[in-house]
Design a protein around this nucleic acid. Structure first.
Length: 420
RNA sequence: GGGUCGGUGCCCGAGUGGCCAAAGGGAACGGGCUGUAAACCCGUCGGCAUCGCCUUCGAAGGUUCGAAUCCUUCCCGGCCCA
């Protein structure tokens, strides 16, 4: 099976330029392939992971992966996917974000050999262009008619918030990026989520007009969970690749909590396992869905991919303690592992006296009122046993003489180490 | 620049002088059921405090015993005209 067929089978090709030309180009030998994301935050998230993993698939097949951090486009803001104008980021923030992202990228895509993988920032070739040059060299080749026909622009034109000229120009910048990468890095394929398709095609058109070259592109479908929610979030919060923002344990949980209905699609999208092995895995999963074999396998693979094998193993172990049964029977080593994976803190017995304050301090409650309400609804446990408003934490038996494991609901935990 | 409509809690959206911490829906959170699931049922959903207080309805002033609701000015957005 060739790479394009594999991607098709995984459901990762939504739109593409002429499929046979694309397939032929990929078979023809090493090709530069580019995926860009704007550094709007100081970390990538699982949404970006799809693109990076596709890059990785191409790299593993001998192609050249080009990851683009949009320092320039990030200043302008992509109009797609939102109804309102973006807030612009200043240069310092963007630079810091690009630096932070580079490290994460390097874990998934091999950037050690510039012939196999590179990270570029479109500020490098965009910043110096003058307005007149841009209007003449890029703007002249695109009609506003085409631009306003794009879905992302049309939605904004129809929305009550409108669209600024700045964001309207976004697709021209992205088109110019593709042109530059084609000219300078031998890039012949651009990829992105289907919401990027309009921007991507603008680049393909620009290159055809200016260079008379046929370049390629494809997009993957934007994933939505079966319950209609957006993927890439855990409990409403974005799932980041930065271990400080989203711990390896939380990343593992993100994938562990995938609904069965979404499992097949998610495994095909994210796993580097060959498809026959995935079929076996899913078959095993369906035999006993309650064991969550599919989710466990995927969660482990991705945690290992993003954070390394050690971290993935530790995350698995921590989850065993937190969901495995009575935490009172957990070993000291296991509890210490938990302490590294879930939020934790050190407190003196005196600090434990006011239960409500502790719940707020450990972030298990948003306010004292919230803590009281949730206590009334028996939403909290300490060391696995339900507690109420009258519980004295200082009277609780410390696990291994020093730990209290607090939990709200099933999924939020906090380990308190008590010292005097 | 002129006209006009609008800015309400996480989001949508009622409310046009007291009965409003503010309907309803969604999201979210907790409980039950379960598989760390789905569906479903129940509860909670500004803050502080053991029904009393404080801070909220774009901002600042004002009228009033009393305002999200009325007035003034300002800020922001949509639409129409120029």
């Amino acid at each position: 099976m060739d790479l394009i067929a594999d991607l098709e089978a995984r459901g990762l090709i939504h739109d593409s330029t002429d499929r046979e030309f694309l397939r032929a180009r990929v078979k023809d030998g090493p090709v530069g392939i580019y995926y860009g994301c704007d550094p709007t935050a100081d970390s990538l998230h699982v949404g970006n992971l799809i693109g990076l993993i596709v890059l990785r698939r191409f790299q593993d097949a001998g192609h050249k992966a080009i990851a683009l951090a949009g320092g320039a486009t990030g200043m302008v803001g992509d109009p797609g996917g939102r109804s309102e104008e973006r807030n612009l980021l200043d240069e310092q923030t963007l630079s810091a974000n690009v630096a932070a992202i580079k490290h994460q990228l390097g874990r998934i895509v091999d950037l050690s050999d510039p012939n196999r993988g590179v990270l570029v920032d479109n500020r490098d070739w965009t910043q110096a262009i003058t307005l007149l040059e841009f209007l003449r060299d890029v703007g002249k080749h695109v009609t506003v008619n085409q631009m306003t026909a794009r879905e992302s622009v049309r939605i904004r034109l129809e929305s009550e918030h409108g669209i600024s000229f700045t964001e309207f120009s976004y697709m021209l910048l992205q088109a110019n990026d593709y042109l530059w990468l084609h000219d300078n890095l031998g890039c012949d394929i651009q990829i992105g989520g289907s919401d990027q398709w309009g921007n991507i095609i603008s680049g393909v058109d620009l290159i055809r007009r200016k260079r008379q070259h046929q370049v390629h592109a494809f997009s993957w479908p934007l994933l939505t969970a079966s319950d209609g929610s957006k993927l890439g979030k855990t409990a409403g919060a974005r799932t980041w690749l930065d271990p400080v923002k989203t711990s390896p344990y939380q990343l593992r949980q993100h994938f562990l909590q995938i609904a069965d209905e979404d499992l097949r699609q998610q495994v095909l999208t994210f796993s580097l396992l060959p498809i026959p092995q995935i079929d076996e895995l899913l078959a095993a999963h369906d035999e006993a869905p309650h064991r969550r074999i599919g989710q466990r396998t995927l969660a482990h693979e991705l945690t290992a991919l993003v954070h390394g094998n050690e971290a993935a193993k530790a995350a698995d172990e921590a989850a065993d303690v937190l969901f495995g049964g009575d935490p009172a029977h957990a070993s000291l080593a296991a509890l210490e592992a938990v302490g590294r994976e879930v939020p934790s803190s050190r407190m003196t017995p005196v600090q434990l006296v006011e239960l409500v304050d502790v719940l707020v301090a450990t972030d298990l409650a948003q306010s004292k009122s919230d803590a009281r309400r949730t206590l009334e609804g028996s939403g909290y446990r300490c060391n696995g046993a339900s507690i109420d408003v009258n519980t004295q934490l200082s009277d609780q038996i410390l696990l291994h003489g020093r730990y209290l494991l607090l939990q709200r609901g099933k999924k939020s935990h906090h380990l308190v180490e008590v010292f005097s």
